[in-house]
């Protein structure tokens, strides 16, 4: 598998919304490279015909009935927020609409 570069780390950090300073990119890249080399070991096992296991316990069809439960009030909902205005969460300007 390809080694992870400084540019890869910068790209992944953008995807993950973490502002890693330029000066630390190389450090992260070398550590991640070593980890990736180690975890690349998984490719050494023959897994043909094996179903990937996404849940540790085999279960199916677990549902909640459509019955209302109490909500928080606005004060509780907003209590932990860094910025609030008019009963809503205040966020810095959004550049583009999804």
């Amino acid at each position: 598998m390809a080694a992870i570069s400084r540019d890869d780390v910068a790209h992944l950090a953008r995807l993950a919304r973490i502002d890693i300073p330029e000066s630390e990119l190389d450090h992260y890249a070398s550590q991640l490279d070593a980890i990736l080399e180690a975890v690349d070991k998984v490719s050494g096992l023959d897994t043909s015909g094996v179903e990937p296991m996404s849940h540790p316990v085999k279960m199916e069809n677990v549902f909640r009935e459509d019955i209302p439960a109490p909500s928080l009030n606005a004060q509780q909902a907003l209590a932990g927020a860094p910025a609030v205005e008019d009963s809503r969460f205040r966020v810095p300007r959004i550049l583009d609409e999804e």
Partner: peptide
């Protein structure tokens, strides 16, 4: 539905802001 997809909060349209919310949908 009466409640949201993954929690018991109301799906009613309108309502005061952030009153149909709980730890799950927040």
């Amino acid at each position: 539905t009466r409640t949201k997809m993954f929690c018991g909060c109301s799906t009613e349209f309108g309502g005061e802001p952030n009153t149909h919310v709980c730890p799950v949908c927040l």
